[in-house]
Simulated assay, not measured.
Amino acid sequence: MAAFLRPRGPALAADTLHPWVWEPAAPLWAAEAYQDAVLAAARTVNRRLQQKLGRHDVGETDLCMQTFDMKEPVDGKPRLRFTGDRSTPSWRARQDGAKYTSAGAFLAIRNLAAHEDKVNWSQQEALEYLATFSLVARWIEECTVETTS
C-alpha cells in the first residue's frame, strides 16, 4: 500500500541514452554483462572525442581535462566550447563542470570497469554509469571545436 501512495519517480529507458553509449552497450547489457557494457560505452565515447578533436596522443582523462579547459587552444590541442556568452559565470561553470565531470567519469567509472576483474554493480548502478557517459557524449556532440587558426 505504501508503494502506491508514494509519488512515482521518472524512469530512465536505456535505449534513449545517447547512441554512442547505448549502441555498443546494448548487446552486452542483454547478456547481463553490465561491467562490459559500461566499458564498451566508455571506449566509444573516448573514440568519438578523439575523432572530433583529431587527437590520439593522450589518455581519455587528460584529453577531457585539456579539451574542456578554458585556456586558448594551442597547435595540436583544440578545445571544445559550449555556445553562449563566455564572459558569464554560467558559461564558465558549465565549461569547468564538463571538464571535471567527463574526466571524473573516465577516472571513476571507466578505469574501474577496465582494471577490475569483476565489479559487483547492480543493474541500476550500471545504468547510472551509462547515463553519465550519455551526458558526456551529448556535451561532446553539442560543443564546437575551437582551434588556433
Rank of each mutant, 00 (worst) to 15 (best):
A3E: 13
F4Q: 08
P7A: 05
G9H: 10
G9N: 12
P10F: 06
A11H: 09
A14H: 03
W20L: 12
E23Q: 15
A25P: 03
A26L: 08
W29D: 00
W29F: 00
A31R: 15
Y34V: 03
A37T: 09
T44K: 14
L49W: 07
Q51M: 07
L53M: 12
L53C: 05
R55G: 02
D57T: 12
V58H: 01
D62Q: 14
Q66C: 05
Q66T: 10
M70N: 07
G76E: 04
S87Q: 12
T88F: 04
P89S: 10
S90K: 09
W91C: 00
R92M: 09
G97H: 00
K99C: 03
Y100L: 08
T101A: 12
A103N: 03
A105H: 08
L107K: 13
L112R: 15
A113I: 09
S122L: 01
Q123S: 09
Q123R: 15
L127G: 02
L127D: 01
E128W: 08
L130V: 11
T132F: 05
T132H: 11
F133E: 01
L135W: 14
V136A: 14
E142I: 00
C143A: 15
E146I: 11
T147S: 15
T148S: 13
T148R: 13
S149N: 14
